[in-house]
Nucleic acid binder design. Sequence first.
RNA 1: GGCCCGUUCGUCUAGGGGUUAGGACGCAGGAUUUUCAUUCCUGAAACACGGGUUCGAUUCCCGUACGGGCUGCCA
Length: 582
Amino acid sequence: MNKMRLRFAPSPTGALHIGGLRTALYNFLLAKKHGGTFILRIEDTDQQRYVPGAEQYIIESLQWFGLTPEEGPGFGGSYGPYRQSERRATYQQYARQLIDNGKAYYAFDTPEELDAARQANPAFRYDASIRQDMKNSLSLPADAVQARLSGGEPYVIRLKVPANEQVVIQDLIRGEVTFDTSELDDKVLMKADGLPTYHLANIVDDYLMEVSHVIRGEEWLSSTAHHVLLYRAFGWEGRMPQFAHLPLILKPAPESFLHKDNTPALARRLAEEFTKKNPGIAAAFLEKAEPFILQVLQDKANIAANLKEKEKDEPQKALLKAFLKDSLFGKLSKRDGDRLGFPVFPLSWQGESADDAFVGFREYGFLPEAAINFLALLGWSPGTDQELFSMDELAEAFSIEKIGKSGARFDIDKARWFNQQYIMKADTAYLADKVRPFINAHGHQPGDAFLHQFVELMRERATTLAEFWENGYYFFEPPKAYDEKNARKRWDPSRSGLFGQLATTLDGLEPFNADAIKASVEGFIQDSGLKFGEVLPLLRIGLAGTMQGPAVFEMMELLGRETSVGRLKQAFLLFDAWAAQV
RNA sequence: GGCCCGUUCGUCUAGGGGUUAGGACGCAGGAUUUUCAUUCCUGAAACACGGGUUCGAUUCCCGUACGGGCUGCCA
C-alpha cells in the first residue's frame, strides 16, 4: 500500500476554531501512527472572505499545539504550491477537461437571477430537471454560447450531475451512505472570478497531492456525493481517497452554563445582539425582548420547548425565537466563547473591528498538551479508562474506528480539569517558562530561582496559567486587600505585643527558611500558650491578605525575611486599628 | 420543506443479546490538611419512545420523537 497522506485544509477566513483544530489533530495523529505525511493546504479560493493574517494564525496555532505539517506553505514538499490561490491554472485546465468530455457546462445565469429564483421558490435547485430552462451551454445554441464567451460575458462552470443514479459512499466512521443524484444540484465548479469552488479544488488537489484519506467535519458529508461524482467525471474513481466525516463539536448544554448570577447578563447580551442583527425591528418589541429572553433562560429545563415556533407567534417573536435557538443550540461558534467566557480558539485573535476579537486557549492559560488531550477525547475514545495521553500515546492509541458518531458538546470544566492535571505533573522549568508571560504581563520580571519556587508552591492551586497570578500575585507585590472579616474574628488586640515579638524574633532568624521559621513559630506558640489556629491564619492574612494559599512557612521563605516581617508588622498595625474601631 | 447523519448519567464516554450498565468531568457528603488546593472514600445520576425479531433486548430491525448537518459563483 502507498504511503498514507493526510491533509488539513482550512480556509483563511479568520481565526481557526477549535473544531478545525481537532480535525487537524485527528489527521496528524493518523499520519503519525502510520508513518504517513501530514499536509497543510490553504484553501483560499474565496476572495471575498479572505482575511489577512488568518493563514499565519492557522500556522501559528498548529505549531503551538505541536501539529507541525511536513508539507505546506513554508514547510516544503514536492506537491506544491500548497496555496490554492497559486494553483489557478491547474484548476482551469481540469475544468476545461470536464467541459470537453461533457461532464460540465458553462452557465451564464447571474447571481441576481439565481437569488430571484430562490426567492420565488425556496426549494429551487439548479439540476437536471431545470437546467434546460436556465441560461447555459446546454440550453443555448452553440453559436450563442460562443458569442457570450468571446464577448467576455461572465460565466461559471457547473458540474452536470446525472439524474437518477445512486452514489454510495463508504465512510470510515458512518459506514455506507447513499445518495440519489436526483437530489443533487449542479454545483458550481469554477466561479466567475476564475477561481474554483471548494468542490473542484479539493478534488483536483487531493488527487494531485495523492491524498489517501480525507478526514473532515460532518458538514461535508452532504457534498461528498458531488465529490465522488467529480472523481468519476475525471476517471479517477480508482484513486479516490477514503472518507471519514467527523461529528461536530456542539455548544455546551445550556444547563451547564446557566447560573442564577449570569443569566440576566446573558439575557441582556443576547437582547443586544438581536437588536444589532435586526435593525428594522420596532423599538416597542425590543423592549419586551430582554424580559422574554430572561424568562426563557430561567426555565432551564424547557428552553428548547419554549423556543418552539407556534402558529400564533407574531413574525417578530418568531424571529427572536429562531435567533435564540441558533444562539443556544447547535454547533459551537466563535460567538459562544465570548458570550460564555471561555476560549473556543487556540490563540487570541484581533480582527479588523473591535468586535472581531477573541481570547485563545493559550492566553486563557492552557498548556498546549492539555488542550490537545482534551480535544482528542472530545469525540474519540481509546476504549480504555485512560484519560491522560501524551501526543505519542495518542498517536499510538488512535484509530478511526473509535471515533464516535454523534456530536460532542464542548465542556470547559472538563478542559480545565485536563489543564490542572498537566500543571500538576509538569516539569518545573517548563511550567515556569509557561507561567512567566502571565507574570510579566503584570510588570514583574522574577528570576528563575524565585519563579521556580513560586510555581512549585502554586501548581496545586491553579487550573490555568493565569491563575498563578490571580491566586498568587502577593508573591510579587503587596496584598491588594485583606480578609477583614476573618482577621477581625481572630485578632485579639491584647495579644498585639505578643505578635510584635514574633515579628521581631523572625526578623532575627537565621537562616530564614521554612524549617527554621516553622520551628520558631512553633516555639512561639508553645511559649505563648496560644493555639495553632489562633496564630497561623493571622500570619497568613498578614502575608497574603487571604486565607487561601500555600503553607505559611514556605510562603515566608519565598517572600524573604524583609518582605515577610515588614508585611506582618504592617498587618498587625492594621488589625489593631480595626479592633480599635470596634 | 427536502436530503443526509445521529441518540447510554447534566457533560465526555465504555460496553454490548443474559452486566449490580463501567470510567471521567461536574455536583453533594465525608476523611486528611493551620487555610485553600491536592489526595482518598462515599453518594445521587443514563440505555429517547413505540413496535417487531428472540427464551431473553439497552445492544439487532422498522417506525416515531428529538437533536445535528447540508440545501451559496462560502469553505
